[in-house]
Design a protein around this nucleic acid. Structure first.
Length: 268
DNA sequence: TGCCAGGTTATCT
DNA sequence: AGATAACATGGC
């Protein structure tokens, strides 16, 4: 498959998706209840174990990354991020799997999230594939897998997963509100699901890294509310704000060793 | 060794 | 509305 401006390793490792492992030069991917392999050879994407139609869906071939890149590169800060970690595509994840992943991500870190999700898949799914929403979770069992206080949220999400079916017909705002009716899902996780599973490319999830980066890069280090950051991003990055977010996130994690605020400078 | 991690909820002013 | 504590646990 030919994809312009595509970097498979950056796309998988940029923090949007947790169900992949490296297999030499290739990657093993577990998503949408399937296991398949992907490898990038001289730029072209080769997928084994899944049909072409599914691959085009998962890798979001419909995203016009040329236009997205042209638009976002007008911003010098985003341009720098895109040059540092090039070729990211926002994948199209399964909504329920995505919800599990980002509930597990709450107040955690990527190595741990990856392990937690894998253990949930091993216990409740098949062959490291996450189960569907019909498989009931139990809080005690989840806690034994090391997810901590997130166990309660996972149980709630599993029980209320039927709400996901309404999302495609709704506007971004309505969809966000609907997702937030699920216990354990608030602004940030809702936005991740909208962006990474429903392709709502204008959504700009604000996590601890993005919050610090945006404050430093666009607000002169000032403390600002998440709502203001989202409004700023919508205004500045427009319908592709989600792509800007992903590049800024990837850049932040590579270049900002800590998300901590800069040491206070001498008072004027 | 302690600090931090892709937050959410309940509870306060 | 906006701030703060509690929630559990592992990675570095």
């Amino acid at each position: 498959m030919k994809l312009s401006k595509f970097h498979l390793a950056n796309t998988l490792s940029c923090g949007q998706f947790f169900q992949w492992t490296r297999e030499g030069e290739a990657f093993c991917i577990r998503s949408h209840g399937k296991v398949f392999r992907a490898e990038q050879i001289r730029g072209a994407l080769r997928v084994e174990g899944a049909d072409e139609g599914f691959a085009r869906h998962f890798f979001a071939v419909d995203h016009d990354v040329e236009a997205i890149s042209r638009e976002l590169r007008r911003d010098p800060i985003v341009r720098r991020a895109m040059d540092a970690v090039p070729g990211i595509r926002i994948l199209r994840q399964d909504p329920y799997e995505c919800a599990i992943g980002f509930i597990v991500s709450i107040c955690s870190n990527i190595p741990r999230i990856t392990g937690n999700v894998r253990r949930i898949a091993e216990k409740y799914g098949r062959g490291e594939i996450l189960p569907g929403p019909e498989v009931r979770f139990h809080e005690g069992a989840l806690r034994k897998l090391g997810v901590g206080f997130r166990a309660r949220y996972l149980v709630a999400a599993q029980r209320q997963a039927h709400r996901l079916t309404r999302i495609p017909a709704l506007s971004d705002d309505e969809a966000r509100e609907t997702l937030m009716e699920i216990d354990g899902i608030a602004e940030k996780v809702a936005d991740c699901i909208l962006l990474y599973a429903y392709g709502r490319l204008g959504v700009f999830p604000v996590d601890t890294w993005i919050r610090q980066s945006m404050r430093r890069l666009y607000f002169g280090g000032k403390r600002v509310l998440d709502r203001e950051i989202r409004a700023f991003a919508a205004d500045r990055f427009g319908p592709y704000a989600g792509y800007a977010q992903q590049y800024l996130y990837a850049w932040s994690r590579r270049h900002l060793k800590t998300r901590q605020i800069d040491p206070p400078s001498a008072a004027p």
